[in-house]
Every structure is written in structure tokens, then in C-alpha cells.
Design a binder for these strands. Structure first.
Lengths: 309, 309
DNA sequence: TGCTATCTGGAAGTTATATTTCATGTATGA
DNA sequence: TCATACATGAAATATAACTTCCAGATAGCA
């Protein structure tokens, strides 16, 4: 959370902070409103600041003095005339404006569920998840994403999927979908101690997709290490603090998992996983489609599903 | 670009900036590119900087140190790792970026993943999930939500969790958490044909949480029907087209699942599930905490986890 | 378990920034 | 022309920023 800097509100003792220049006005507005009361050097400064607004004011007072060809004291005086306590406070206002201008629309407040107050857990949780998603994607390298997808879609090598105690369900989620898209997919069980047996079937060039979030599990890190030794390419899904398994990973995707809860939220991890599934399916379309058809035929014959409507 | 020599990672604090001539890269890009080589405190700092980028980096090094909860020296060290001469130079780069961004309206366009074009699947998928979440929450009755949570948290009755072929992983996700919060929780397996056996242990007043999305599974609907006959209260998670099992449900939560994919996205369903977990945990705090403690003690004794950090 | 290499923040040291002071400069009107 | 009032920047000062150094903490390893 960005610390909230106090708005420049105080009566400067220069006597006359111009009329009604409310403290929440932008610097530019304040300059324009008070322009006629500025002196020659101050106007020169004002013009420079407005010319390359607001960046010119974000540097040091010295730098601004040089570019606008006035002295530093002039800058301080003008800042005070505009109602700020000093130059740093003016700068802080400028930064605030930059934030307003650039800030991602997703960070803006949203009321998700109309029926519930903002403070209701539903809305707070949704807010957190969206924040997580935004931050995760801001960190994600699309190139690595594409490459990892290609690796998972490569039919020449097997894909192994593994997770931990909680993330095991995510691993299974990926596995179930991959299984529908391509052959040569295995799920390494997380709950029992048989996983070393699965390592026997991991070969040079294979891919291991591993999910590991805090508290990072010893099993998972070991698995990553052993797999790496066997020449297996590791794709790691972890949290923002990054599992130690990352040192063995070819691609690491760190997802935000914080939520207003005693437990972490792996929702974002699931979104990324789903996106990958979509990508892999799309790029291996023909083969995948055939496989899906076959699969559905099998389902129909086993009577596992009944079609409704 | 991917790091290929991850296995050879070590003594990273050689003075050399990791990437060759990074001088024209944005700070965010440099952070992302070097993230793997950053230490714990540096990653914490990096996360803060990306969180409110670029404004958080425009203030003083002291302010940044405070908001990111690391020391000023750490900031200097990271700046150097990223290839800058010091913090002021990094800042100057940030200001330059602000100038570029603000003066060039095209870059102001809202993007999720900066590096990827809007049309990239990552961004389209994220957009869809957000849309799904919005619509789902707009239709969700907070009252029903609260009541359903209360039912799941009621220790006087057992809770059974079941899902289908794909949603089975979600069911397991809920189950694993519930299990940590309260006793009397069972997972009805979806993959085999033993589920009728589990019905034997469902009693009047119990709760059944069922996940069922299209194509609605025969098994699931049958399970709902039989459970209802035995006086079990059904909480149903389904999609916007609503599973036929809804006719037996006390509470139905329909979640949007559409995505730019050949497969559906159950991400929103997971978010709702996680929110419920948070709610239940919070309202049965004392007992849950005790249980969690006990559980962790057990984990420690089995040596399943090693603590990192 | 202890050993080693690395990480980290406190505190001192160094440099830059922001502000105040004050002498000089400039405009205006008598 | 002078007197006055304000404007301005050089220099001094105060303040804060930035960097370096170092000892304790920590993680990984044998």
C-alpha cells in the first residue's frame, strides 16, 4: 500500500496562498490559477514545468533550477506561493498525480457484489484476487509463457505433473486436461510416498510441471532436484516468494496468492494454468481434436455421462 | 528470455549486471529479467516496486525502504544488480519512463501483461475471468452465501464433498481445507464407482457440497437425488446454465465459466470456494485454530515439511 | 550437528538537496 | 536623480539522501 502522503494543506506564512487553491488541486491547476501573481523568474519556471509536465518536476530541485534557468530559491518560493510547505511537498503531489494518471484501472475500487457491503468478505476477497491477478500478470513474461506451453505441447517428450498437499489438486486439474489433449502425460501422486517410483519413468528431455507454494515442501524440492539430474525440464508454478525448487527450473511462474483468509488463494495459479491449457489445446489443435473425439466416444460407451438438454 | 543455466546458479553478487546492455530496458523489465537472481529481501522490494509502478520508486530511497520493509542498502544493492550505478540513476530511468508513458497515449492503454499485445491469449483470458467474476458476484446473494457457510461450518453435522470428472479437483480442494478446519468431513470420490458406499454414511441433516458443470454428469445428479432423499442438505456449485441437480439443492451458486478456450474455466468457482473457506475458518476460529495447531504438529512429526525462510 | 558462504540492516560516512540569509539587481514613481 | 519596494541568485546552512562498511543472522551444505 503506498503510504499516503499528506496533501499540501497548510497556510504558508508568505501571507497569500492564492484564493481558494484547494489543497487537492493539481500542481498545474495551481500554477495556472496563480500565474498572474507570479514574478518573472517564477513564470519562467512555471512555463518549464508545464512544458514537460509533470516529469520535469519529479527530479531534484537543482536539476529543475538548471533546466528552467532560475535559482533554487526561486523554486522554493514559488512552491510556497502555490500553497505547499516546500518543494518536496510539491513533488509528492506530482507523484500522486502520476499515480492517478497511470494507475491501472483494475486497482480502482470496485463493488463486486451489489447486495453486499464493501466490507463483506465476498467483495474483499474478489478485490484481493483481482489484485493478485493483475500483479501476477505484470510479472509474467509472455515469451516464457509461450515457450513453456510449447514444451508441454511437445508430443516427442512425456509430461509429468506434480503438486504438494494443497497444490496437488491444481496439478491434477492440469493433468486431467493435458490428458485429454495429448498422450504421454502422467500425474505424480503427492499424497503418498510412491513418487520416487515415478521418477524411474522420467527421461532426458521430458517435462515436469511442478506446483509448490509456501510452506515449500521438502518432497517437491527433492523431486525437482532429482528430475533435473535426469535431464528433465522443469516448469515451476510457485508463489511470489519463490520455492527453492526454482533453482532447478527452466521456467518459473510466480503467482500472487495472498487473500483475506487464513489460507492462501491459488486462484491466480489456476487462471494461469487454464490459460496454458487453452494455449496448448489451440496449438496442437488437430491432434487434440481427434483425441477428444475418441475420448468422448469412450465416455458415451461407458455411459458415464448422460446428456441433458 | 529464459534462463537456461539455472543449474549453474551461484555467487550471484558478482558486480556484473545480469543482462548485457540493459540500458534501454525499463526498470520493470530489468526486474523481471533478473528476478531469479534476486535475494529474498530484494524480491520483496521488487514486488513492492512493481505493485505501484512506477510511482513507488519515484520518492526517496528512504520512503521506498519503508514501504517495502527492507533497508536502504538493499535498495542500492538491487539497483546495482539491475545494472544502474545507484539508486538515483534508477530513479532517473523511472522518470524517463513516466515521460514516455504520459506523452504517448497509446501506451496508456490498459494491458494486463505489459510485454504481451492485447490480443495475446494471456490478456484475453484474464479479461474473460474478470468478466466472469463480475457477473457471478453480481448474481450472488450474500445472504445465501453466509447461510451456506454457516451450514458448512456447523460441527453438529457432517459435511460431504463431491465433484465430477473435472470439478473433482475443486471438490478435493475444498475438502482438504475443510478437513483442516473441522472434523466430520468426507470426500466422495468421483473417479470410481464406489460412491454409492459413501451414501451410506450420509445422514439426515448432513451437508453435501456438490460441484457440477456442463456436461452435467449422470453420477452427480443421481448422487444429489439420493442424498436429498436421505434428508441431506445440498449446496450446489454449478455453471450459469445450472445443473439439473439444482432441483434438489438448498443453495445453488452458479458461476460463469466461459473463457477463450476449448475448455471451461472453473477459476471463478475456485474463488467462491476459497472465499467460503475463509469465511468458515473465520467464524469457527477458536476450534479451527486448535485443529490447525494439532495438524501442524503432526506434519512436523512426520517430517513431511521442512521449514524454509 | 557444526561449518561456510551469503544475506541483511544498523550505523557511520559521504554527498546531494532543500532552505534561509543576505547582498545586489531592477523597476517604478516622485 | 533618488528613494522605495520588491525580485533574484550566490553563498551558507540545515537537512535529508545516498552509499559504504561491518557484524550479526541465515540458509545451504557436509
Amino acid at each position: 500500500m503506498p503510504k499516503h502522503e499528506k496533501n499540501a494543506e497548510q497556510h504558508s506564512n508568505t501571507g497569500k496562498p492564492a484564493t481558494g487553491n484547494a489543497s487537492d488541486n493539481t500542481v498545474a491547476e495551481r500554477i495556472r490559477a496563480n500565474f498572474h501573481q507570479l514574478t518573472r523568474a517564477e513564470r519562467q519556471l512555471a512555463n518549464t514545468m508545464l512544458e514537460n509536465y509533470p516529469v520535469s518536476g519529479l527530479g531534484s530541485i537543482t536539476a529543475l533550477a538548471e533546466t528552467s534557468d532560475v535559482s533554487a530559491p526561486t523554486i522554493v518560493r514559488m512552491a510556497k506561493k502555490l500553497g505547499f510547505r516546500g518543494f518536496p511537498q510539491l513533488q509528492s503531489q506530482l507523484r500522486h498525480e502520476v499515480e492517478e494518471t497511470i494507475s491501472n484501472p483494475i486497482t480502482r475500487h470496485n463493488r463486486w457484489s451489489e447486495g453486499a457491503p464493501d466490507a463483506h468478505l465476498i467483495n474483499r476477497f474478489a478485490e484481493a484476487v483481482m489484485q493478485n491477478l493483475r500483479q501476477t500478470l505484470a510479472n509474467l513474461d509472455p515469451g516464457e509463457f509461450d515457450e513453456a506451453c510449447a514444451m508441454m505441447g511437445d508430443l516427442k517428450h512425456a509430461v509429468h505433473v506434480a503438486g504438494g498437499r494443497i497444490t496437488g489438486t491444481l496439478a491434477e486439474y492440469l493433468f486431467r486436461h493435458l490428458q485429454m489433449i495429448r498422450p504421454g502425460t502422467t500425474l505424480v501422486p503427492s499424497t503418498d510416498s510412491h513418487w520416487p517410483h515415478y521418477v524411474l519413468d522420467m527421461h532426458d528431455g521430458d517435462t515436469l510441471v511442478l506446483y509448490d507454494v509456501r510452506r515449500y515442501e521438502n518432497n517437491s524440492v527433492k523431486l525437482a532436484e532429482i528430475a533435473a539430474e535426469r535431464g528433465v525440464n522443469l516448469i515451476l508454478f510457485t508463489d511470489q516468494w519463490v520455492s527453492p525448487a526454482a533453482r532447478y527450473a527452466k521456467y518459473t511462474f510466480s503467482c500472487r496468492i495472498e487473500a483475506p483468509s487464513a489460507w492462501d488463494s491459488t486462484a491466480v495459479m489456476q487462471v494461469i494454468t487454464e490459460t496454458m491449457i487453452a494455449r496448448i489445446q489451440a496449438s496442437s489443435w488437430k491432434k487434440a481434436q481427434l483425441r477428444t473425439r475418441e475420448l468422448e466416444a469412450l465416455f458415451d460407451r461407458t455411459g458415464l455421462f448422460r446428456r441433458f438438454k
